[in-house]
């Protein structure tokens, strides 16, 4: 199945090669989807542990610690790397 992916916040430009939509296994869980996104990043880049995770507009926690959920076809996974610029 396919899900939508939006990687935003600090360092959003590293996501240029993450396909949107992204092909994931049916019944994919959030943790697995995050790992699949991370695999598509440039070799020297990683998602910060503090990156916020939201699915379908619902914040689930961070990459380090988040509520688990099963994704549906067409769901949007949003990853927000923390920003603090003023």
């Amino acid at each position: 199945m396919k899900i939508r992916v939006l990687l935003t916040g600090r360092g959003y430009q590293i996501a240029q090669h993450v396909p949107d939509p992204l092909e994931v296994p049916d019944g994919c869980r959030v943790t697995e989807a995050i790992a699949l996104v991370a695999q598509r990043l440039p070799a020297d880049q990683a998602l910060p542990d503090s990156c916020l995770v939201a699915v379908q507009g619902k914040h689930l926690g961070s990459v380090r610690s988040h509520d688990e959920a099963t994704l549906q076809e067409g769901d949007e996974l949003m990853l927000i790397a923390p920003v603090a610029g003023g």
């Binding site: 939006l6 935003t8 959003y12 916020l52 939201a54 507009g57 689930l60 926690g61 949003m78």
Partner: peptide, 18 residues
């Protein structure tokens, strides 16, 4: 809620916070 304005990709979202 958190509003995310991603001007680079031209996307706007809101998320309900946990």
């Amino acid at each position: 809620r958190m509003l995310t304005y991603d001007g680079y990709h031209g996307q706007i979202r809101t998320s309900d916070l946990r």
